[in-house]
Amino acid sequence: MSMSRRFFLKSSSALAALSFIPNSVKAFYQDVKEKFFVKKQMIPIQLEINKKQYSLTVDSRATLLDVLREELNLTGSKKGCDHGQCGACTVHINGEQALSCLTLAAMAQGKAITTIEGLADGDNLHPMQEAFIENDGFQCGYCTSGQIMSAVACVNEGHTGSVEEIKEYMSGNLCRCGAYNGITEAIQQVAK
Protein backbone atom coordinates (compact mmCIF):
# COMPACT_ATOMS: atom_id res chain seq x y z
CA MET A 1 0.00 0.00 0.00
CA SER A 2 2.69 2.46 0.92
CA MET A 3 4.05 3.53 -2.47
CA SER A 4 6.69 6.17 -2.07
CA ARG A 5 6.03 9.78 -2.97
CA ARG A 6 8.88 9.55 -5.46
CA PHE A 7 7.05 6.80 -7.34
CA PHE A 8 3.91 8.89 -7.36
CA LEU A 9 5.71 11.93 -8.77
CA LYS A 10 7.54 9.90 -11.40
CA SER A 11 4.35 8.24 -12.49
CA SER A 12 2.47 11.48 -12.88
CA SER A 13 5.24 13.07 -14.92
CA ALA A 14 5.28 9.97 -17.09
CA LEU A 15 1.59 10.55 -17.66
CA ALA A 16 2.23 14.04 -18.94
CA ALA A 17 4.48 12.63 -21.62
CA LEU A 18 1.81 10.13 -22.65
CA SER A 19 0.69 12.02 -25.73
CA PHE A 20 4.00 11.34 -27.49
CA ILE A 21 3.85 7.58 -26.97
CA PRO A 22 2.50 5.02 -29.52
CA ASN A 23 -0.91 3.47 -28.78
CA SER A 24 0.40 -0.01 -28.03
CA VAL A 25 2.72 1.34 -25.36
CA LYS A 26 -0.11 3.50 -24.05
CA ALA A 27 -2.34 0.48 -23.61
CA PHE A 28 0.40 -1.36 -21.77
CA TYR A 29 0.94 1.65 -19.54
CA GLN A 30 -2.79 1.80 -18.76
CA ASP A 31 -2.62 -1.82 -17.60
CA VAL A 32 0.38 -1.11 -15.43
CA LYS A 33 -1.32 1.97 -14.06
CA GLU A 34 -4.45 0.01 -13.10
CA LYS A 35 -2.31 -2.48 -11.23
CA PHE A 36 0.21 -0.23 -9.54
CA PHE A 37 -1.12 3.29 -9.28
CA VAL A 38 -2.07 4.22 -5.77
CA LYS A 39 -5.73 5.13 -5.89
CA LYS A 40 -7.11 7.70 -3.54
CA GLN A 41 -7.68 5.96 -0.27
CA MET A 42 -8.81 7.50 3.00
CA ILE A 43 -7.03 5.99 5.96
CA PRO A 44 -7.41 6.48 9.71
CA ILE A 45 -4.20 7.60 11.42
CA GLN A 46 -3.08 8.73 14.85
CA LEU A 47 -0.53 11.51 15.14
CA GLU A 48 1.18 12.95 18.19
CA ILE A 49 1.86 16.60 17.50
CA ASN A 50 3.24 18.95 20.14
CA LYS A 51 2.36 16.37 22.83
CA LYS A 52 -1.26 16.25 21.71
CA GLN A 53 -2.93 13.16 20.17
CA TYR A 54 -4.91 13.54 16.97
CA SER A 55 -7.15 10.89 15.39
CA LEU A 56 -7.64 11.73 11.76
CA THR A 57 -8.84 10.25 8.52
CA VAL A 58 -6.49 11.41 5.79
CA ASP A 59 -5.75 10.80 2.15
CA SER A 60 -3.02 8.17 1.93
CA ARG A 61 -1.19 10.53 -0.44
CA ALA A 62 -1.21 13.43 2.05
CA THR A 63 2.09 14.76 3.27
CA LEU A 64 2.62 15.59 6.91
CA LEU A 65 3.03 19.24 5.86
CA ASP A 66 -0.36 19.35 4.13
CA VAL A 67 -2.06 17.61 7.03
CA LEU A 68 -0.57 20.13 9.45
CA ARG A 69 -1.52 23.11 7.32
CA GLU A 70 -4.77 22.10 5.67
CA GLU A 71 -6.35 19.68 8.17
CA LEU A 72 -5.14 20.92 11.54
CA ASN A 73 -4.67 24.65 10.82
CA LEU A 74 -1.13 24.35 12.20
CA THR A 75 0.19 26.72 9.55
CA GLY A 76 3.46 27.56 11.29
CA SER A 77 5.25 24.95 9.17
CA LYS A 78 5.65 26.58 5.78
CA LYS A 79 5.47 25.32 2.22
CA GLY A 80 8.32 26.91 0.28
CA CYS A 81 8.93 24.28 -2.40
CA ASP A 82 7.12 21.04 -1.48
CA HIS A 83 10.20 19.16 -2.71
CA GLY A 84 12.63 19.14 0.20
CA GLN A 85 14.78 21.88 -1.31
CA CYS A 86 14.19 24.87 0.96
CA GLY A 87 13.78 23.74 4.57
CA ALA A 88 10.78 25.97 5.34
CA CYS A 89 8.70 22.96 6.42
CA THR A 90 11.28 21.65 8.92
CA VAL A 91 9.80 19.99 12.02
CA HIS A 92 11.26 17.64 14.60
CA ILE A 93 10.27 13.99 14.52
CA ASN A 94 11.43 12.10 17.61
CA GLY A 95 13.69 15.06 18.36
CA GLU A 96 15.40 15.08 14.97
CA GLN A 97 15.10 17.48 12.04
CA ALA A 98 12.68 16.29 9.37
CA LEU A 99 11.20 17.79 6.23
CA SER A 100 7.44 17.53 6.63
CA CYS A 101 6.89 17.95 2.87
CA LEU A 102 8.85 14.76 2.18
CA THR A 103 7.13 12.81 4.96
CA LEU A 104 3.80 11.20 4.25
CA ALA A 105 1.44 11.78 7.16
CA ALA A 106 0.92 8.03 7.43
CA MET A 107 4.66 7.54 7.98
CA ALA A 108 4.66 9.78 11.03
CA GLN A 109 2.38 7.62 13.14
CA GLY A 110 3.68 6.58 16.53
CA LYS A 111 6.35 9.26 16.50
CA ALA A 112 6.58 12.47 18.49
CA ILE A 113 6.20 15.42 16.14
CA THR A 114 7.17 18.92 17.24
CA THR A 115 6.29 21.91 15.10
CA ILE A 116 7.13 25.57 15.62
CA GLU A 117 3.82 25.91 17.48
CA GLY A 118 5.08 23.45 20.09
CA LEU A 119 8.46 24.99 20.70
CA ALA A 120 7.49 27.65 23.21
CA ASP A 121 6.42 26.73 26.74
CA GLY A 122 3.04 28.43 26.81
CA ASP A 123 3.70 32.15 26.56
CA ASN A 124 7.38 31.69 27.38
CA LEU A 125 9.34 31.64 24.18
CA HIS A 126 12.08 29.11 23.51
CA PRO A 127 15.50 30.79 23.85
CA MET A 128 16.03 30.35 20.10
CA GLN A 129 12.78 32.20 19.37
CA GLU A 130 13.88 35.03 21.64
CA ALA A 131 17.29 35.12 20.01
CA PHE A 132 15.73 35.35 16.54
CA ILE A 133 13.70 38.37 17.66
CA GLU A 134 16.63 40.03 19.35
CA ASN A 135 19.05 39.48 16.46
CA ASP A 136 16.45 40.25 13.77
CA GLY A 137 17.02 36.79 12.28
CA PHE A 138 14.25 37.25 9.71
CA GLN A 139 12.53 39.76 7.50
CA CYS A 140 9.38 38.44 5.85
CA GLY A 141 9.21 35.58 8.35
CA TYR A 142 8.22 32.87 5.91
CA CYS A 143 11.34 30.73 6.30
CA THR A 144 11.60 31.52 10.02
CA SER A 145 9.77 28.51 11.45
CA GLY A 146 12.04 26.16 9.53
CA GLN A 147 15.13 28.21 10.38
CA ILE A 148 14.31 28.06 14.09
CA MET A 149 13.59 24.31 14.06
CA SER A 150 16.92 23.73 12.30
CA ALA A 151 18.69 26.21 14.58
CA VAL A 152 17.52 24.29 17.65
CA ALA A 153 18.83 21.09 16.05
CA CYS A 154 22.10 22.85 15.17
CA VAL A 155 22.68 23.67 18.83
CA ASN A 156 21.46 20.27 20.07
CA GLU A 157 23.79 18.47 17.71
CA GLY A 158 26.71 20.71 18.62
CA HIS A 159 27.46 22.29 15.26
CA THR A 160 28.14 25.74 16.67
CA GLY A 161 31.93 25.65 16.89
CA SER A 162 32.43 28.54 14.46
CA VAL A 163 30.52 30.93 12.24
CA GLU A 164 31.47 28.74 9.27
CA GLU A 165 30.18 25.59 10.95
CA ILE A 166 26.85 27.22 11.77
CA LYS A 167 26.51 28.60 8.26
CA GLU A 168 27.28 25.21 6.72
CA TYR A 169 24.75 23.42 8.95
CA MET A 170 22.07 26.04 8.27
CA SER A 171 22.51 26.06 4.49
CA GLY A 172 19.59 23.69 3.95
CA ASN A 173 17.26 26.43 5.13
CA LEU A 174 16.97 29.04 2.42
CA CYS A 175 16.15 32.66 3.22
CA ARG A 176 15.48 34.80 0.16
CA CYS A 177 15.38 37.99 2.24
CA GLY A 178 18.98 37.09 3.09
CA ALA A 179 18.70 37.58 6.85
CA TYR A 180 21.68 35.28 7.32
CA ASN A 181 23.62 37.58 9.64
CA GLY A 182 20.79 37.59 12.19
CA ILE A 183 20.15 33.86 11.87
CA THR A 184 23.82 33.06 12.46
CA GLU A 185 24.13 35.51 15.34
CA ALA A 186 20.97 34.17 17.02
CA ILE A 187 22.45 30.66 16.99
CA GLN A 188 25.78 31.91 18.32
CA GLN A 189 23.95 33.66 21.14
CA VAL A 190 21.99 30.56 22.18
CA ALA A 191 25.05 28.31 21.86
CA LYS A 192 26.99 30.39 24.39
Partner: peptide, 12 residues
Protein backbone atom coordinates in the same frame (compact mmCIF):
# COMPACT_ATOMS: atom_id res chain seq x y z
CA UNK B 1 14.07 44.04 21.54
CA UNK B 2 12.80 43.49 18.05
CA UNK B 3 10.11 43.94 15.44
CA UNK B 4 6.53 44.63 16.34
CA UNK B 5 5.43 41.41 14.62
CA UNK B 6 8.41 39.43 15.93
CA UNK B 7 6.48 37.11 18.21
CA UNK B 8 3.93 36.29 15.52
CA UNK B 9 6.75 35.32 13.18
CA UNK B 10 8.87 33.22 15.54
CA UNK B 11 5.92 31.27 16.94
CA UNK B 12 4.33 30.41 13.60
Amino acid sequence: KGRVEGIAKVTG
